[in-house]
């Protein structure tokens, strides 16, 4: 059972810091962008279905437009032809944005060590959580989402303006 925040029982107010409240709100209402390319996309459809419902964790509203999404879930093989498209979708997302790489092909190229497959999406965009598997079970995908939620809850509000983050983006050639 998840615990309710302190202000919901008792006296109705709580003393906390701003970034904890914002982190809590963000974490439980992540709007994912399912960038589903291949077999992992079907496992994602099963995760969104009623048996392993992802909507319980706040990700009920899928956004196919990057401008309105928080979390880019890359599921499936990314070929070299698709890499510029992926990068453009990532650039169109507004801060704060997180990336979840689902499946062996998105993490590292998977079983396709060929001339046409990008060996991992972290060659083109920064990734926050990797979910291995071929395809990963829905429980694993949910575990990945929970880890993203932990990252989101504990993120400092100044992170996106910090030098470390700017350096990370510069490594990928993103301004």
């Amino acid at each position: 059972m998840a615990e309710a925040p302190a202000s919901l029982d008792g006296l109705g107010y709580t003393l906390t810091s701003y970034d904890k409240v914002v982190g809590l709100a963000r974490a439980h209402s992540l709007w994912p962008l399912p960038f589903a390319t291949s077999c992992c996309g079907i496992e994602f459809m099963a995760t969104m279905g009623s048996n392993y419902d992802l909507g319980r964790f706040g990700s009920e509203r899928l956004s196919f437009s990057p401008r309105q999404a928080d979390l880019l879930m890359v599921m499936g093989t990314i070929a070299k032809k698709m890499a510029p498209v992926l990068r453009q979708v990532y650039l169109q997302m507004a801060e704060p944005r997180w990336v979840l790489s689902v499946g062996a092909c998105a993490c590292s190229g998977g079983i396709f060590d060929t001339y046409s497959v990008l060996q991992g999406i972290d060659q083109v965009i920064p990734v926050d959580v990797y979910v291995p598997g071929c395809p990963p079970r829905p429980e694993q995908i949910i575990q990945g989402i929970l880890q993203i939620q932990e990252l989101v809850k504990n993120e400092s509000l100044m992170r996106r303006k910090s030098e470390v983050y700017k350096e990370l983006l510069n490594k990928y050639g993103i301004e």
């Binding site: 390319t37 291949s38 499936g76 093989t77 070929a79 032809k81 698709m82 498209v85 079983i111 396709f112 060929t114 001339y115 046409s116 497959v117």
Partner: peptide, 21 residues
Amino acid sequence: GYIHRAFEKLAEHRPYYQITP
């Protein structure tokens, strides 16, 4: 071609049971 994974070239480098996956 946005998800071309070169199955046919891959199959030339794998023994027969490894082609099933």
